[in-house]
Nucleic acid binder design. Structure first.
Lengths: 333, 333
DNA sequence: CTGAAAGCGCTTACAG
DNA sequence: CTGAAAGCGCTTACAG
């Protein structure tokens, strides 16, 4: 591979001039610029970006921490990140963390070792050994830690869950089960709060025994549905905290000989591509997945350039999408 | 940030010794090692990997070229890549190319600029300006270019498609429509060849007018289904080249008042997570998505280390998964 | 086992 | 506008 030295020799100029031709062409005379360009073409020179990054102390790379890249919601968020990053001249390093703190820290450390300039964290953890570490530019999107000063891009999950719960309540459901995400997640907590709020406003009682935990997988939704449906007093509607668990719950419900929504209403969250195509099509909350990514990347870009973002906490819009997995409660006239 | 210089000063040794303590600890005496370790902890030293990479001329990074990261099949492949890469000490850069040659070349160039050590290409293109360029370690997985010497990880798509077609034929279908992937794709060509082969063996004729093109999206599957079903002599079965297009075709078929599989059988390809949960559950070909990734990464690793892989063309197993979207042809006794 | 020194390929004040 | 020179933070022959 040709180096800047080779080009300078062939062009008969200094390496400084070659460097300038590349980075600050207006600081070089028209004539010199041409000579250098020719030499670059002749030698097929490609600047060593690794050397440049090393020299300028920036990698033009961001690392994204994602619990599971194969999750259909996250993969769309990442597509959004990638698109913005590309426009801004950044590369994106993939950090599939499985939600493990160790991996999060390992990947986040890439900023300290100069391999990345900033971090986008899609999970509800601070990915540093020391929670008060401020040395790395970071933005927290999707599932956001409460009470930190990390900038965030999120949904108003309380309001969204409340809206969904109100939909269920309006159909006459009084006994509502919950298939919840894992504990220690802001998303999970907020969605539960929204549900409780709606229940309370309707004069209904929330029963903690109606809450089953899942891990966002189809399988866990099915398992949780069994628990719920085998209760002495089973719920007439199940509020699921994502679409995959809802799909699992629907399948399980049907397996047990029950009809959705005839016997049981089931709702999801996210509106993934397939929500519309399962049987029955899923009532859910839609979120602009890509925009979580583009907004997070835009904010991170500002942070990496030392400007404080105007709005440190961005809330994205949601929508209740009513399809056929929810219907009137059975004993409701 | 502390540098190796700071550590050496505090430990009272040379920077060479600090460097060795980190990379070749057995070349350093027990005692020195301890002193250095203490100094490292005291200064909270983290080696600058960017500097190390620059110095050693390797980035320990691979770039993956993927047409669409949000595609559920590819996202699983990438998960496989990431997991293997992590074990081998490599980071993975995401190159969402949208299938555009320009972007492929841009990302592939990262090897020339030292930002990456190797490439995994998941699409059916050679990502170099010059098709004969051999300067970058690369492996081609999933949709593989024919007649190059890039190592490949692929399915025997001819055999898989033949198996699916035989299933359809065995159900009495004689007039089979095809919703095809884009042209100039080995996957598309091979799956079509497999279908033709099965047809031929059964003494059936393949009609080119029965082939509609899609782009692997749900929407394109629906559009193609309209074309097929509005023909004068519509097919009784539709062979789709991926699951998303099959899901779109099913939805469209139902919208037109037809029953699947009562009136029309529809088959998919890939067995994505949701294939089992659409209505009706999809008959499809399952493929070990993650293994495309792990195998590709393993091969690339060998290539980057200068060893030729034993087997340059890996074929992964597939399976026909019969569910309810396919059934007996209507006029077949 | 250890240290002094060269050097990886760039960029960027500084001087002219 | 241009060049000589320093230096980014490491690693690695080489010599002892």
């Amino acid at each position: 591979m040709a180096t800047i030295r080779d080009v300078s020799r062939i062009a008969g100029v200094s390496v400084a001039t070659v460097s300038r031709t590349l980075s600050k062409p207006d600081k070089v005379s028209e004539k010199t610029r041409q000579i250098v360009q020719e030499a670059i073409e002749k030698t097929n020179y490609k600047p060593d970006i690794l050397a440049r990054n090393f020299r300028t102390r920036k990698s033009s790379t961001v690392v994204v921490l994602v619990p599971d890249i194969a999750n259909p919601f996250f993969s769309r968020v990442i597509r959004g990140i990638e698109q913005s990053a590309q426009k801004m001249g950044y590369a994106v390093l993939l950090g599939d963390t499985q939600g493990l703190r160790d991996r999060e820290i390992t990947y986040a450390n890439m900023v300290k070792t100069s391999q990345a300039d900033g971090i986008i964290q899609l999970d509800c953890h601070i990915p540093f050994e020391d929670k008060n570490d401020r040395s790395a530019p970071i933005v927290n999107a999707c599932d956001c830690v409460r009470g930190t000063d990390m900038p965030t891009v999120q949904l108003d999950n309380i309001a969204a869950a409340e809206k969904m719960a109100n939909h269920l309540i309006s159909l006459g459901h009084k006994n509502i089960g919950v298939i919840s995400g894992p504990e220690n997640s802001t998303i999970t907590n907020d969605r539960l709060r929204g549900l409780k709020k709606a229940l309370e406003n309707a004069g209904l009682e929330y029963s903690p025994s109606n809450r089953m935990y899942g891990d966002y997988s189809i399988h866990s939704g099915a398992m949780a549905a069994v628990e719920l449906l085998e209760k002495e007093n089973p719920p007439s509607a199940i509020f699921c905290m994502n679409d995959e668990m809802a799909i699992g719950a629907i399948r399980q419900t049907k397996k047990m000989g029950l009809n959705v929504p005839g016997d049981i209403s089931i709702s999801g969250f996210d509106d993934i591509n397939f929500a519309e195509f399962c049987d029955p099509p899923l009532t859910t909350i839609s979120q602009p997945a890509e925009e979580f990514g583009t907004n997070a990347m835009t904010m991170l870009f500002e942070l990496m350039n030392g400007t404080e973002p105007e709005n440190k906490n961005i809330y994205l819009p949601f929508e209740l999408v009513i399809r056929n997995s929810t219907g009137r409660a059975r004993n409701d006239p």
